[in-house]
Design a protein around this nucleic acid. Structure first.
Lengths: 139, 139
DNA sequence: GACTTTCTTTACGTTAACGTAAACTTGTTT
DNA sequence: AAACAAGTTTACGTTAACGTAAAGAAAGTC
């Protein structure tokens, strides 16, 4: 018996609403089992949810994520064409990720220098203030 | 005289539609000059567009991007409160970027192993095929 | 001067990713 | 039994980020 999860357990763990989780199922990103009407999520489902959210953070649409899942499932018993397609998709993703990496390092550099400038501006403000508090020899 | 650009020049350079560029202006991300009705973009505008698109690739909304622009403008003549606010925003962004970096490296690792498995599956297919072509000593 | 191109404004349409509400079932706590 | 919590389906509403179409102005070209 491997562990299972309720919808609200997953919701609180990953900080998403149950509405979202059901929506992901509607978009065929998840296929939880049922006991009666109630959804029961396996740890495999949990991984899928985790991957889904990670994909979202990287800017993938739900449709793209689904496509990757499907391709990956087909890869197991895949024909040569499907394997090639998967490789192509993987290549695309990798290229996009490298672009994102570049973007991130650029923005990080910008943020860093922005932070420095901010701190300098703050220092100058403090400087002025202490100048005003003890105005000794001034013209 | 520094260089200026037409809307379509920028559109083709950055591979976006003119509609998008005008929309960004509507959202106050850009403030091009005018000659008559016609928009004229400075190199400063060009930089802003570039930053906007980069922000988008990183998953920022136009509203967030605008907010950052505004904060940055205010930073020049900023009060202490505004500077502190800017520093806070910068901190947020940096944290989000680090999370994204982690996400990316995770996915990169997954894609790498996925690629390996794909190539292995392909090899096995080729193996089978050449086995079938010259079925020598079998059983 | 008619044509074409490039630009403009105005405005309605569209898609993704949920939010929100209503009405119902099922289990369990008082 | 009544109330409560947690789950369900159905369905309409919402927001962001444009797409698309209509209709017209300004400038260059044949």
């Amino acid at each position: 018996m491997s562990k299972t999860y309720s919808i609200s357990e997953l919701a609180t763990e990953f900080d998403v609403t149950t509405r979202s989780i059901r929506f992901y199922e509607d978009q065929e990103l998840l296929r939880p089992a049922r006991r009666g009407q109630t959804r029961i999520y396996s740890s495999k489902d949990r991984v899928r949810l985790k991957l889904t959210l990670r994909g979202k953070r990287l800017g993938l649409s739900l449709a793209e994520i689904r496509e990757l899942f499907e391709l990956w499932d087909e890869t197991r018993s895949g024909s040569e064409k499907q394997l090639q397609l998967m490789l192509a998709k993987i290549g695309e993703r990798r290229a996009a990720l490298e672009q994102q990496m570049k973007d991130i390092t650029m923005v990080q550099l910008e943020l860093e220098s922005a932070e420095i400038r901010c701190r300098q501006a703050l220092e100058e403000l403090n400087q002025k203030r202490s100048d005003e508090q003890r105005p000794r020899a001034s013209g």
